[in-house]
């Protein structure tokens, strides 16, 4: 009898305790947390944007060894006191462990191979980041917030963001096509509507010059295909001083493109347009596009 009472009490205790628990369904399982995490580590930039929306400063970021890869507007909200964890593709597990985090936010594509290791260090929330669409990101930020038991708050923010984007879209009265591409020393890569920047463009009611049926988010291109795609507005983010887009410019085909003919080729910040995916970045991108269209 005594045993049974004890058992019952223990069971009750467990259930009340689990009420205080946080539980989030992520890409590879369910994250269970006993309390709201305080020492957070982000292994992709999109998670930094999400954290900044909640005014949470991460203690470690896989920032490729360069803090300025996080855009100023986000650093203004959360400071830049974090520890660099190395590159995003090979974050240093040792440095992560030495920070004693109580939550790690990781990217499904890049970090699935080290997921088990990360879980040994701290509870790990693994979400889509690399190759995510605009819509994917809006779902992921709510999951990030859920880990801090602030999902409702974030949903409100997402709704506010949606209203803002609607306002931006209302300001735009154009059926011009807009495309963003990244240029490095190895080549030029177009971002299709499946990529984040392409999604933002679509969200604003603008066309992408790349056909909808393209499955890949990022498509390597030659100048020839670029001329075929022929965007009305062409934004390029360059990694480095001398990149392949510079050799394209020397080509007379370059001047055949609508964007170049009408002086609508713009060199923009690849950190904003490609690295820092998130609501804060999307709103700045929208402002840039509107300024560009009004010119």
């Amino acid at each position: 009898m005594l045993k049974r009472t004890l058992f019952l009490m223990a069971a009750l205790l467990v259930t009340t305790l689990s009420f205080g628990q946080i539980s989030v369904q992520d890409e590879l399982g369910t994250l269970e947390l006993d309390s709201v995490p305080e020492r957070v580590v982000a292994l992709e930039f999109s998670f930094v944007d999400a954290l900044a929306n909640l005014d949470i400063a991460p203690i470690g970021v896989a920032d490729d060894g360069d803090k300025t890869r996080v855009i100023e507007q986000i650093r203004a909200r959360i400071g830049d006191e974090w520890v660099s964890l190395g590159s995003r593709s090979q974050p240093s597990l040792e440095v992560i462990a030495s920070l004693n985090p109580d939550l790690i936010i990781a990217d499904r594509e890049r970090h699935e191979a080290i997921y088990e290791d990360l879980k040994r260090i701290a509870p790990t929330l693994i979400l889509k980041s690399r190759g995510e669409t605009y819509e994917d990101n809006l779902k992921a930020v709510v999951k990030v917030a859920a880990a801090f038991d602030r999902a409702d708050e974030m949903e409100k923010k997402v709704a506010e963001h949606g209203a803002k984007m609607d306002q931006f879209a209302a300001q735009i009265d154009s059926d011009a096509s807009v495309m963003f591409a990244v240029s490095s020393a190895r080549g030029v890569t177009m971002h299709t509507p499946k990529a984040y920047a392409g999604g933002v463009v679509n969200r604003l009611g603008l066309r992408s010059p790349v056909p909808e049926e393209t499955e890949d988010a990022y498509v390597r291109t030659t100048i020839e295909r670029l001329v075929k795609v022929n965007p009305d507005y062409f934004l390029v983010g360059e990694y480095g001083d001398e990149t392949v887009i510079d050799t394209f410019k020397e080509n007379s085909l370059w001047n055949v493109m609508n964007a170049v003919k009408n002086d609508r080729y713009v060199e923009t910040d690849p950190r904003l347009w490609s690295l820092n995916r998130g609501m804060i970045a999307a709103e700045i991108m929208a402002e840039e596009i509107i300024a560009l269209l009004e010119e």
Binding site: T222, I223, E224, V227, N251, S252, L253, V256
Partner: peptide, 12 residues
């Protein structure tokens, strides 16, 4: 075709 000629001359 102007673009085709450019393509041949400048890239192909």
């Amino acid at each position: 075709e102007m673009i085709h000629q450019h393509i041949i001359k400048e890239t192909r």
